[in-house]
């Protein structure tokens, strides 16, 4: 009976889930899986990729998108893009930071490593007004703030495969998802057709074109490369301690498994007296 109920339940889920997936598939396709250096239990950020991503952010995205919770100093943090202290100071000094002088007058001074990335717009209302009524989202947590529906049974498999990169996959797909609108789709004014954006009409025009940003390390200057690099950088900005987390996680796992094994034998030994 137990098994029958279990089987029926699973079958019920599967039956109920299938039409949903199909329906969603027709509406917004699932983003394709991208191979990320930071996925899985041994994942690490690719330093060179983060540096390229930062270049893209600085030259393209930062014109509209803020990144208020990331400081220049973070660029030198362990597990990140791996800039040196001197490079960070140099980068910071290229930015103008609003500050007050001794007399309380508003001034602009050169940035310091402790400063946070300045925002392109003075405040959210200005950002809205300048971008057709929708403020460009802040980059600080954006890669973790986006996802797509995995559906049954994939969301259960994800526990075991540790698939956590729905956000980055979605962003890559979105950045590459600017295609011609189908004939029957009326793109509203101020919108751009995007295959992966829910509702398909996104305010952001296609932000990246091949060849737009020059890479010094010889990486291909293609849209595909750009989108993966900027997304990798966004993931780092959202989760700067990802590398430390996964490394400590591995140590904790090994410890717990050894400890559990010892506890098991201790338990057996103790209980052997009771039988």
């Amino acid at each position: 009976m137990k098994r029958i109920i279990l089987a029926l339940t699973l079958a019920g889920f599967a039956a109920a889930a299938t039409p949903v997936l199909a329906e969603e598939g027709h509406d917004t396709p699932q983003p394709p899986r991208v191979k990320w250096s930071f996925s899985g239990p041994f994942g690490k950020f690719d330093q060179a990729q983060l540096q390229r991503g930062f270049k893209i952010y600085r030259e393209v995205c930062a014109n509209c998108h803020s990144m208020q919770m990331v400081a220049f100093r973070n660029l030198a943090d362990a597990g990140g893009p791996g800039f040196s202290e001197a490079q960070v100071a140099a980068v910071a000094s290229e930015y103008k930071i609003k500050d007050l002088d001794d007399k309380g007058e508003a001034v602009e001074r050169a940035g310091r490593p402790a400063d946070y990335f300045p925002s392109p717009f003075a405040n959210e209302l200005v950002a809205k007004a300048a971008n057709g009524g929708v403020a460009p989202p802040d980059f600080s947590t954006l890669a973790k703030a986006r996802t797509y529906e995995r559906g049954f049974p994939w969301f259960i498999f994800d526990i075991f495969t540790q698939y956590q990169e729905q956000g980055p996959d979605y962003i890559v797909a979105l950045l590459q998802g600017y295609v011609d609108a189908p004939k029957d789709f009326q793109v509203p004014p101020g919108g751009n057709y995007n295959k992966y954006f829910p509702g398909h009409s996104i305010a952001m025009p296609p932000p990246l074109q091949a060849g737009q940003v020059t890479f010094d390390d010889g990486s291909p200057q293609t849209l595909d490369q750009y989108t993966r690099d900027i997304t990798s950088f966004m993931m780092w900005a959202s989760e700067p301690h990802l590398v430390a987390r996964k490394r400590l996680g591995l140590q904790v796992m090994v410890f717990l498994i050894v400890f559990a094994g010892l506890m098991y034998f201790t338990k057996k030994k103790v209980w052997s007296a009771a039988h």
Binding site: F255, V258, F259, M263, T266, K269
Partner: peptide, 19 residues
């Protein structure tokens, strides 16, 4: 053997608690 097992388990537990 039993004492060794108890000591090893206790020691590992103590290391974990300290960590």
């Amino acid at each position: 053997r039993r004492d060794f097992l108890y000591i090893a388990t206790g020691a590992i537990g103590a290391v974990g608690a300290a960590a």
